[in-house]
Structure formats: structure tokens, C-alpha cells
Design a protein around this nucleic acid. Structure first.
Lengths: 140, 140
DNA sequence: ACAACTAAAGAAAACCGTTGTCAATAGCTA
DNA sequence: TAGCTATTGACAACGGTTTTCTTTAGTTGT
């Protein structure tokens, strides 16, 4: 089963329905390896389902985010883009120019976090790590 | 010289003027160790200078951000809060409950970044690291 | 298949944080 | 002290997002 089929199935389990506009949004977000904002999703979705409204894009994004299938990505030029969610302890490497995104694992912050907890008295529950750079295609 | 005096001096070097409303905003942002959004800055600033307008808060924040004296902080509930800027290679530890912020150094991501550059072909130019947790006062 | 139920759709308006406009005010410099 | 002009606050405008409402169309049970 493809990723988008799996997402649609998860929406159905929650009592959701599989509709053509929803399928368009889901497929775009499931298949794209770039962080996309609602306007970009809308533009791409209209190619598959021209009658779709921007509001439906917002509503579908909201549902997918609630199911933790996508997540909001924070960038210098704003925090309005969404990307397929991390699986387990993954972080993201973003191309500053084209928005292409790669997930990675392997950060080792255990020592840092332990030492900070001791020094500051904070209980640390989560961390965000994002790397920014240029993907091979954008290095010219 | 206090931090707020130093910030006001830097504004003056750029041809800026030291006014009462501007001083109020600068003092609040320089002295507070919590991430504050424009509305919060406005509320606090009105205690020092009741006639201040929200627009002046936005404009002063814009100037301070351009001078890299404050920076935008990204959180789960939005990205509208500002905090005294990092000095050199500092990251931030935020209390999820009260917004209190501590700066720290000592992340060691050199190996990770080098290995990712080799594996992915990306040129990595920057990284964001934020830790979230509960400060001692919010752990009850 | 069909009917009934109701989730989801699109259109339009509302909302709200942020930015722009403008005349009046008040720092700074000579 | 006068003159220049950056800054101010009020108001309007803007734009992304959310709400409201009626219509459409998945889904379920017969």
C-alpha cells in the first residue's frame, strides 16, 4: 500500500471520508520531498482536482497534522511549510534554496542534555535540530 | 553601561533617536529572560509609557532584529516571540510552560555534520538546535 | 441498488496579526 | 534656539487563516 493510501486509510479510521480533493492534497504531501506551504499545496492540488478550494487544503492539512502524518517546518522565511512527519527520532536537513528536505538520524545529544539538566535544573523533554544548507542541485 | 543603554547607543549609531517609547521597548527586551511576543511587549511597555502604540512596538522590534540584538524564537504554539540574540554559537533551552529561556554552548555536531555532508552531498551552512523542557519553577 | 445520515465541499465573509499611510510631534545638530 | 527629519500614534489596508453557511457527495444499513 502506498503512503498516500495509508494516510487516507488512517483518515477513514477516524470517521473521515475519502474524497477527490482530499486525495489530491494527501498525495501531494505524501509524495513530495520538499516543505510546502498551503498556497503551494493548493496550486499543486488544483492540477489534480481543479475545483478544489484553498479552504479544503487548510482543512486537510489540519487533519493530517493532527494525525501526526505531516508536521510544520520552521525556516528563516517563515513557518508555514509542511512536510511528511519524522519517523521516530529523525531530524531534518533542508535546502535553503529549493526547500528540498532529507531526514536523518544519528545526532548524539545525550551527554549535552544530561549535563544541561544537571547544570540548569531544567527537565528537558524534547529537542529540535534542523540543518540548513544547499542540496547538490542548488550548489551551482 | 547596561544592556539597554548599549542597544540604544547602537540604534543611535545607525542614525536612530532615543525616544521614551523606544526606550521602554528596549528595556523590556533587554532585561527579560523570557521569549515575548509583540502583544506581550506592548502590554509591558505600556506600564512604562502608557501612550505607546502597538505599531511602535512592531517597529522597534524590527529595528532590534535588523541589528541582530534580538531574534525570533520558534515554539510549538507559534513563532512570534522574540528573545535577546545568541552571542556567538549559543543555542536556547526554553521552558514550555513559562517561556523562560537559557542560552547554552557546547553542542558538538561537527562529526554529524561532516558525515551528513559526505553522505548527502549537501553543503551544510547552519544549524538550529533548541531544547524544550520545564524550568525548576514549573516542575511542581 | 436505494435511502438516510452526515462529513466534507466550496463560496463568501469574518478574523486578526502585521504593515503601510499620513499629519503631528519631538530628538538631534548646527 | 531654529531647522531638519526620524519617530510617533491613529487609522486604514493587507494577507494569510478560520468561520459560517448551504450544497454536495461518501458511507452505511436496508
Amino acid at each position: 500500500m502506498s503512503l498516500s493510501e495509508s494516510w487516507l486509510a488512517q483518515l477513514q479510521v477516524e470517521g473521515g471520508r475519502v474524497t477527490a480533493p482530499r486525495r489530491a492534497v494527501v498525495e501531494i504531501l505524501a509524495e513530495t520531498d520538499r516543505a510546502l506551504n498551503p498556497a503551494e499545496v493548493y496550486e499543486l492540488a488544483r492540477r489534480r482536482h481543479p475545483a478544489i478550494g484553498l479552504v479544503t487544503v487548510y482543512r486537510t492539512i489540519e487533519r493530517l497534522e493532527a494525525l501526526r502524518l505531516i508536521e510544520r517546518i520552521h525556516q528563516h522565511d517563515g513557518c508555514h511549510a509542511f512536510l511528511r512527519a519524522a519517523q521516530g527520532h529523525e531530524h531534518v536537513l533542508l535546502c535553503e534554496r529549493c526547500g528540498r528536505a532529507l531526514r536523518f538520524v544519528g545526532d548524539d545529544l545525550e551527554d549535552l542534555i544530561r549535563s544541561l539538566q544537571e547544570r540548569t535544573g531544567f527537565i528537558i523533554r524534547e529537542h529540535w535540530l534542523q540543518l540548513f544548507g544547499l542540496c547538490p542541485a542548488c550548489q551551482t
